[in-house]
Design a protein around this nucleic acid. Sequence first.
RNA 1: GGGCCAUUAGCUCAGUUGGUUAGAGCACGGUCCUGAUAAGGCCGGGGUCUGUGGUUCGAGUCCACAAUGGCCCA
Length: 1022
Amino acid sequence: MFHKVESKVVFSQMEENVLRFWQQNNIFEKSVAIREGAPHYTFYEGPPTANGQPGIHHVLSRTFKDVICRYRTMQGYHVPRKAGWDTHGLPVELEVEKSLGFNSKSQIEEYGIAKFNQLCRESVLGYVKEWKAMTERVGCWLDMEHPYMTMDDEYIESCWWILKQLWDRELVYQGYRVTPHCPRCGTSLSSHEVALGYKEDTDDPSVYIKFRLCSSSRGGQKTPLRAIIGDVPREDMPVYFLVWTTTPWTLPGNTALAVAPDVEYSVMKGDEEYLILAATLVHRVGLAGYEQVETVCGEDLVNLYYEPLFDPHDFAVECRSLPSLAVETERESRAYPVVGAGFVSTEEGTGIVHIAPAFGEIDLGVGMANNLDFVQHVDLSGEIKGTFSFAGRFVKEADPLIIGELQERGQLYKSERILHTYPFCWRCETPLLYYAKKSWFIKTTEVKSLLISGNEEVNWYPQYIKHGRFGDWLENNVDWAFSRERYWGTPVNVWCCRMCGHLECIGSVKELRLKPGVSRLKTPLNLHRPYVDEIVFTCSQCGGEMERVPEVVDCWFDSGAMFLAQWHYPFENSDKFKGNFPADFICEAVDQTRGWFYSLHTISVLLFGKPSFRNVISLGHLVDDKGEKMSKTRGNVVDPWKLVGDYGADAIRWYLLASSPAGNVHRFSTQKVAEAMRKTLLTLWNVYSFFVLYANIDHFVPRHIDGREESFSLPEIDRWIVSELNYLIAEVSDVMDEYDPTAAVRRIEKFVDCLSNWYVRRNRRRFWKSGNDDDKQAAYTTLHYCLVTLSRLMAPFAPFLSEEVYRNLVCAVDTDAAESVHLTDFPVADHTKVDLPLMRATRLIMIVCSLGRAARAKAGIKVRQPLARIVVGVDSREEEEALQKLALHVKEELNVKELEIVHGQIPDEMPGYVTLGEGERSVAIFTELSPELLSEGISREIVRYIQNMRRVAGFEIADHIITYFQTDAVVIKQVMRDFADYISQETLSDGGVVEDFPPDDAHDEKCRISGSEILLAVKKVA
RNA sequence: GGGCCAUUAGCUCAGUUGGUUAGAGCACGGUCCUGAUAAGGCCGGGGUCUGUGGUUCGAGUCCACAAUGGCCCA
């Protein structure tokens, strides 16, 4: 016997029972363990940042990961999946800062780094707990008992090892990196933080500055410029480049001008000077009193030199050379070059761009590429250094002073104001400065071609990411600035000598312990700041004291190192690392393209020259029902716990999988979760409860649960559903192998619909009928086989419902069976059972039935009323045969006595018929009703009334009853007599259908049937 | 400001390499059926396929530009 199944089900309760079963019986652990020794399928968990409550969008990626891993497990692969948590990084620090009410780094240092980092650790552990609970509840199987944590000392040591490898290959260097910097808070801001603080309509200076062409530099022998202006330098007719800027305070840092090589520039002659600017911008700048004497190509301006506005040596400011950063000694005369650059715009300004490598990312890039000077005349608090007349001022206060000075010197062409968008600090509203800071870099550009060729081996879903977003990103690769001036992170493992500046990279704890003169190594060891900062040792070069550099490592480096750091490789688990590299599958949201996908790929390519993953699903984001981003501030985030309670995890999973393909943006809709539950899961549940209900009544015992042939041959319709099922298995396997679970669940949905609304609907009588013949056995066997197979097929997608169905339909009757559906194998399609002609034939009769019902509606005759004949037009021999073979279903479904087949279209007008056509196909029903047909119609009407009354009276399906009736109508009396057997059989009126007054304890109702009244009553018999 | 993606019915989505009158589900209105069903059938309303140009005998589909939204980077 199967356990009784209620047709009313609360999925969340059912799921919690299943969860308990999994936990108590370690089903997840077993599902991995039983595949030990089988081919490996490696999954890498992209570690979620344990910062903030998990939302519905996190359920999305967890679902996709879980589905693929479960699928592969059931296919026989060994799929261990270690959970991981990204524990370091700025978001964690910001959260703690907020809770302490801090808004600057100095406050953290006053508070104490040790205490601060302890709070970060606690904060992370708190969120990890929340995440674990959510992960478990939505049925995402991960080994969360043995996760990797990026903050563990072992993990950090592996990161150190990686950096040491790169250091030894001279791929690590110190350089400058331009970051948005808040001069008040004294800290760099992440791009996320910058995005929080953009202000439109910021009022700033808009100034046009004249840079004087060096008299010795008028181009080569035959340049167009020389031709215009002449060979002999004329002091009274100087040549200027006209340059536009909104940040005058950066002008003392100017060391080059950039032009667009392929743009036309005008040489404008005025009374006392020549001005050069882009030809298309002359009118916008408004050069009254100047006339164009010639045009030159941008190319011809490149390599000309101009006089600095502020020579750094005149104002006691350090000047370094890029890219070496060597401090320059004084030179006699200084001139700066004009360079060509692709980014120069002719949309605004003058088409000649002021370059200050210390104050802009593009500027720094130009500086590195052209070996420019690097002049940083502003300190981190935004104050101007040196001996300028405006030194000691905050940069924004210096702006008007600089403009004034240039005006006095005659180098200001025009000064205006402009309203534009500018970033401010989101905490203190101070304008941000783009500022070059020292940073540690990994020379990823060295392996750029390997990054690109490695990507060729990766299978991306959706495909366009490969050569689109990810490929482009690799093509434009720049060295990875991997250090951060923060506290809670993997410390950069480089020590620097205080005396001679000698640098040394430490690759392991052991190496550190063995350093000569090492001191302040505490036990137990803690590799975090501030403890690691205290460790010093003796310099091998000069005997001075080596101390650690202050930076920590970018947390993207941490997570990208997981493929080896999760095993503490190479210090232990060498076999595990090797057995799990590269990954067969990873999956994250699309924002990880330049995050984890990149860091994982890059570290692997740097170390081993090859990629670390083979297949990757990049998920689109989940947005709210209006298509807008979910965020706390908008208040449109969806709480997964509420949904789980209302609809269950399977419904959420099913919805997330089915609603749109992985790469697309998903609009989240609670209504659609409800729909997924109703339409597919509940429908399946009802087929299941229907089966169990009748199977138990008949004491059905499945003899084979593998779909093998019974001793009797299966009827056509059973072979049909078995065929559909095997076809489905093949389709689902195919699309799953292509990493497309969306296609898989959409196909399953169609099958469930067919199973319920055709197979069960058409076969109800086979289950109801009394007796226990072969046909009934075939029906039970077939439906049981379908449900059990479906439970295995759906197990990766709807793990709870599948488990429930499997446990009851298999485990309850077979003690030898695997205890969980998740320990079974994924179904394999049996192609010998796929009968395509039969499937086509069935589809044909479905259409014919649909047309027939429409014809009935058109004629206004209920389906309950039998009709004498239907005529169906077919257009091929195959269709005719199909229809003949399955005529019984058409006749039953449409309640007609005869089915006639004709070739070609049926004429629109046939006496006595109602005709309906759709495209090539047409049907006609004969609508004249004989007295016999009418009587039969009445009998069916009566049956329907009695069935309704049984239900209203609260009888069980198998309850036997007596039916009483009273009526004056002769016709009805006659029907009750003629159809007594039929009525009694249909309504289980074994006690008889008697014409009598019902007893008081019977349930009675007055009914109207074809214009006459009848009193009907039902009563249970013992 | 740049790159990538998306835009098809009120909502969520299908629409092969261009080829009849653009489909499904949900929702809505009507009606029928029903002792598995929270379901199902039938009929119906609802579309300038975001817009503008172009290529073509023919464009939802290919190209260009624009708008809106999302993501990434400035």
